[in-house]
Design a protein around this nucleic acid. Sequence first.
DNA 1: TATTGTTATACTCTATAACTATA
DNA 2: TATAGTTATAGAGTATAACAATA
Lengths: 155, 155
Amino acid sequence: MSDSATTANDSSVQERLAASDLAREPVFLAIRLSSRGSADANRALAALGLKVRHYAVLALACSDLRPTQRELSQFLYLDPSQIVGLVDELEGRQLVQRRPDPRDRRSKVIVATASGRRFYAEARATVSTANEETLAALAPDDRDQLIRLLAAVAF
Amino acid sequence: MSDSATTANDSSVQERLAASDLAREPVFLAIRLSSRGSADANRALAALGLKVRHYAVLALACSDLRPTQRELSQFLYLDPSQIVGLVDELEGRQLVQRRPDPRDRRSKVIVATASGRRFYAEARATVSTANEETLAALAPDDRDQLIRLLAAVAF
DNA sequence: TATTGTTATACTCTATAACTATA
DNA sequence: TATAGTTATAGAGTATAACAATA
């Protein structure tokens, strides 16, 4: 399920769908929100040359978690081999660094550089604007509620 | 973001992540629910030889919407060329039929056969069980609330 | 001239297995 | 013997363009 349809986003088309059984299934609805949300976020991030997955890695590199690549793969449900490429790209743009882990020399801790932090602040604002767009149909209270419920399922 | 990590699902790993900024971003959370939900649903549907996208097409073929392939592509945010293959597989298993659209001979209406309807009932029960698993962390009221909010965003 | 279903093709994403260096 | 990062490769999923039939 993704964002590739041709003439979609016709509101009457979506209204017809809303009447179906499918439209009451939580997994189906989550897939839709996810694909719309990541399409919106990717569109916004494209101006910065990022995709959501780069953004997610950068966000964690800016956090105080000091994650290893292995941990990034666990946090993001991505294969360790995919983290390699994402870190490569971010490192090539000097947004993050690979640092030896003093506790285990096999591991590499991924930390943001100073410019990586500045860039993240910018990206975060961009994503936040995209989120506004995605969740425009909800009142502020409902957004908070949605975030709370999603977090409860996710963790 | 998908379901490919190696030793993930360690609850302490997820607790650490819950403390990050990322864990408050609705799009990130939706991606997680979507990937977990579709992984659960796909696992359940595998016993029936279906994936969620086949299931979605079958569900709409069983509805009273009587969708054309073009409409299916709009409903599911899939490219028309992808609908072809999904309908081919379902038709090969005699679960759905392509019927000429009397109103436009270019179009083909996709309708479920009798055995398609029986099969859908079974698949629906299976998916429902998988949903229970995915949403186990939520109380019934919270589940209803989540579905309501997701539907409000999706339509 | 535009649209529906279809085919073909290229591209991205995902999954898997191996290799190296460390543990 | 097992694990972290890496590489390579195959497979699935996605995007794009073209074509025949019909509008």
